Computed example of a mutant assay.
Amino acid sequence: MQYIEEFLTAPDNHDIPVRMWRPNRVDNILVIAHGMAEYCERYAPLADWLAESNIAVVALNHRGHGMDCPDQDLGHYADRRGWEKVIGDLDQTITWAKQQLPGAPLTLFGHSMGSFISQSYLQTHPTSVSQLILMSTNRINRPLLNAAKWLVNGIKLVRGPRVTSPTIEALSFGSFNKAFRPNRTEFDWLSRDHDQVDAYIADPYCGFDCTTQLWADFIGGMLSIRYHLWPESVPVHLLSGTDDPVGEQSKGIRRMVKEMTQANRPPTTFKLYEGGRHELVNETNAMEVWTDLKTLVQNGSL
Rank of each mutant, 00 (worst) to 15 (best):
H278Y: 09
H237Y: 03
V58T: 04
D48T: 09
N13G: 00
L134S: 03
N264V: 02
Q213N: 08
F176I: 00
I133F: 10
E274A: 15
Q119K: 07
D292C: 09
S301T: 15
D244C: 01
L272E: 14
E186W: 08
Y205N: 12
E279H: 04
K251I: 11
G82F: 10
S118V: 07
P45T: 01
T212I: 00
A263L: 11
E41R: 13
W49Q: 14
A286C: 09
T127E: 13
W49P: 03
H14W: 14
V163H: 10
V129L: 04
A51I: 02
W189K: 03
I94Q: 03
R42A: 09
D209Y: 06
F7Y: 13
N141K: 03
R22W: 01
P17C: 07
Q72R: 12
K251G: 02
L134T: 07
W230H: 06
T164E: 08
N183S: 12
L280R: 06
P231W: 08
C69R: 08
T212S: 09
Q196N: 14
F7L: 08
K178T: 15
W49C: 09
A47I: 07
A78I: 10
A148E: 10
Y77S: 00
P267D: 03
Q100A: 12
D79H: 14
N24H: 15
G241E: 05
F270L: 10
I117F: 06
F187H: 14
S165V: 06
A78C: 10
G276I: 04
M256Y: 02
I201H: 05
I140G: 04
V197I: 11
L302P: 09
C69I: 07
V234D: 04
V289P: 04
R254V: 05
H194V: 15
R139E: 11
T284W: 09
N28D: 14
P45S: 06
L272D: 06
S112H: 08
D15F: 11
F187R: 11
P245M: 04
P17L: 06
G300T: 06
G66A: 07
Q262C: 00
R142A: 12
I94D: 00
H228Y: 12
P245R: 03
H237C: 04
G154E: 10
K85P: 00
D79L: 15
R42T: 07
R192F: 10
H125M: 02
T291Q: 15
A44M: 05
Q262G: 05
F180S: 02
Y121R: 07
D48G: 08
P182A: 03
E186C: 08
G66D: 03
V289K: 05
D188A: 07
Y273S: 05
T269A: 03
P245A: 04
D195L: 04
Q99M: 11
R277K: 04
L90T: 01
L171G: 09
M113L: 15
M67K: 15
L134R: 00
W96T: 08
Y200F: 15
L190Q: 04
L134F: 02
V257K: 14
N285I: 09
H62G: 13
T242E: 07
N28A: 11
A97L: 09
V57H: 06
V58E: 00
R139D: 11
N299H: 15
V163M: 10
Q262L: 13
